[in-house]
Simulated scan of single mutants.
Amino acid sequence: MSTSIHKGAFTAKTEDGFVVFIIGVRLNKLSGFFKWISAIQAMTPMLKELYQNPELGFLQETTVIGWRTVTTIQYWKSYEHLEAYTYGTTHSKAMKMFYQKIEKSGAVGLYHETYKVEKNESLYINMPIYGLAKAFSHVRITNELNTARKRMERTSFFE
């Protein structure tokens, strides 16, 4: 993530309809630490592939690290793009590894959530370009967009 701070208030200019995909791994048993690390490392080739192939529909991701969890928040052009990716070689290989080496022990958990987004609102104050603004574009807030309701209900402020 860029560390350049953009002073003031900004929002994200997004396209109509996109997908937010949240995926992560959780350390359930401390004795499974090395399995947890293996599960996290399985994400690296997938993210590399996604960033190198924009035609796959992947837009951007942010990784959040907690004490027992590592979560990746991803933005995709559509659900169809995300679904198609799950049938690809890199993802299939990672899931096969997870089921063979990790799933049976219960030491590591895997979770994901998928959201189709038709409307959204965002606010970034004195922040680097982050989240939706990084996935799409980062714009300064004007009077036409100075409340959450106005940003949520916008139709053509960006046209």
Rank of each mutant, 00 (worst) to 15 (best):
M1D: 12
S2D: 15
S4L: 15
S4T: 11
S4D: 07
I5C: 01
I5H: 03
H6S: 12
K7V: 03
K7P: 02
A9M: 07
F10P: 00
K13L: 06
T14M: 09
E15C: 05
G17R: 03
F21R: 07
I23H: 00
I23V: 06
G24W: 01
G24C: 06
G24P: 01
N28G: 00
L30T: 06
G32Y: 03
F33Q: 10
F33R: 06
F34M: 07
W36G: 00
I37K: 04
A39W: 01
A39H: 06
A39S: 12
Q41E: 14
A42Y: 05
T44A: 13
P45H: 13
M46F: 03
L47V: 13
K48E: 15
E49D: 14
L50E: 05
L50K: 10
Q52F: 09
N53P: 02
L56Y: 09
L56V: 09
G57H: 01
F58H: 12
L59F: 08
L59E: 02
Q60H: 15
E61P: 01
V64L: 14
G66A: 09
R68E: 01
R68A: 02
V70P: 02
V70Y: 02
V70N: 02
T71W: 07
T72C: 11
Y75A: 04
Y75K: 07
S78K: 04
S78T: 15
Y79I: 04
E80G: 10
E80C: 10
H81C: 15
A84V: 08
A84Q: 07
Y85S: 08
T86E: 01
T86C: 03
Y87G: 03
T89V: 10
H91L: 05
S92W: 06
K93Q: 15
A94W: 02
M95S: 12
F98Y: 15
I102C: 05
I102R: 00
E103Q: 13
K104I: 08
S105K: 11
S105N: 04
G106C: 08
L110H: 07
T114S: 10
T114G: 05
Y115A: 05
K116V: 15
V117G: 09
V117R: 14
E118Y: 08
E118G: 13
E121R: 12
S122T: 13
S122R: 14
L123K: 06
Y124T: 13
I125T: 12
M127K: 13
M127D: 03
P128S: 15
I129Q: 15
L132V: 07
F136N: 06
F136Q: 09
H138F: 15
H138P: 04
V139I: 15
I141A: 01
I141D: 01
E144R: 03
L145T: 10
T147L: 00
T147S: 10
R149K: 14
K150S: 09
R151D: 04
M152Y: 14
M152Q: 08
T155S: 11
S156W: 00
F158A: 10
F158Y: 14
